[in-house]
Write a protein that binds this DNA or RNA. Structure first.
Length: 264
DNA sequence: ACTATATCCTGTATGC
DNA sequence: TGCATACAGGATATAG
């Protein structure tokens, strides 16, 4: 499931297309395309990201916005299953593939600096413009369960189920603890943990459970072996050796250590 | 303002 | 072996 580290790995891989011009576009499955894609003749001047969204900024100020959803992939050159859109970019083939069809592409007029379509998406933890003190205060103002707040992309973006569970495990917090019941210091610890775990994942190319997430050249990430809680039901907690359990929350699975992460 | 649920989608795993 | 069901889940719409 591409979250911030995986999307950033993809974004970095796409940077090699900067300076190239889109020559041709083929749409094999219109379901992944939200808008018309008038891309021919556009020169890519940057590839940017906020949270789990990324966009190609064009010299003329417009942009192509993309979200990978559950299984979206950008691939340069190589073959890909489930190819939905194919672009010729400066003579190279850029494919957008997506098995589960939750990914989306959209043309964003004037969106080069920041697409209006994602104005509701909050800054992520790696954004230099992020005010951490302000974010901590915002989180503390919410009575919702802390994991719900972590996953709310309009509060802080980029965190999905995997890194939410890992951040909560690292900071010894139960997913259902009300955010408003946490001290500011604890919230800042949680944010530091979330940023740290995502930075470590980014170092090794993200987390790949299967072939659904790979880099633009088809490489898997290696962070799965470093996960402490997510996907580790029945395996020992790396801190206290008690078995990690899986519990349903928000229609998803939450993985946690019942000893380290008390509901209170 | 907050919370819960359904929806989109397909490959894989499991149950009978 | 085969058929049915559950599951993975990010974003959004809708209902309460």
């Amino acid at each position: 499931m591409p979250e911030l580290p995986e999307v950033e790995t993809v974004r970095a891989g796409l940077e090699r297309l900067v300076g190239q011009t889109i020559n041709n576009i083929e749409i094999f499955d219109p379901r992944v395309v939200r808008t018309e894609l008038p891309l021919a003749g556009r020169e890519i001047t940057a590839v940017r990201r906020r949270g789990k969204y990324l966009w190609f900024a064009f010299r003329d100020g417009d942009a192509l916005l993309a979200h990978l959803g559950m299984s979206g992939q950008f691939r340069i050159g190589g073959q890909s299953k489930h190819e939905r859109v194919r672009l010729d970019v400066g003579g190279q083939t850029l494919s957008f593939a997506d098995q589960r069809m939750f990914g989306k592409l959209a043309f964003s007029p004037g969106g080069a600096a920041g697409p209006a379509e994602i104005s509701h998406i909050a800054l992520d933890l790696f954004d230099p413009a992020l005010d951490v003190a302000q974010l901590a205060a915002k989180i503390r103002s919410k009575r919702s369960a802390v994991k719900r707040v972590l996953l709310d992309q309009s509060t802080v973006s980029g965190i999905g189920n995997i890194y939410a569970d890992e951040a909560l495990w690292r900071s010894r917090l139960h997913y259902a603890r009300p955010a408003s019941g946490l001290s500011t210091a604890k919230i800042r610890e949680l944010l530091r943990a979330a940023k740290a775990v995502m930075a470590e994942a980014l170092e090794v190319g993200g987390t790949s459970f299967d072939a659904l997430y790979v880099s633009v050249v088809g490489e898997a990430g290696y962070f799965e072996r470093s996960l402490a809680a997510y996907g580790r039901e029945g395996l020992p907690c790396p801190r206290c050796s008690r078995p990690i359990v899986r519990e349903p929350f928000m229609g998803r699975s939450s993985f946690l250590c019942r000893k380290c992460q008390r509901p209170q």
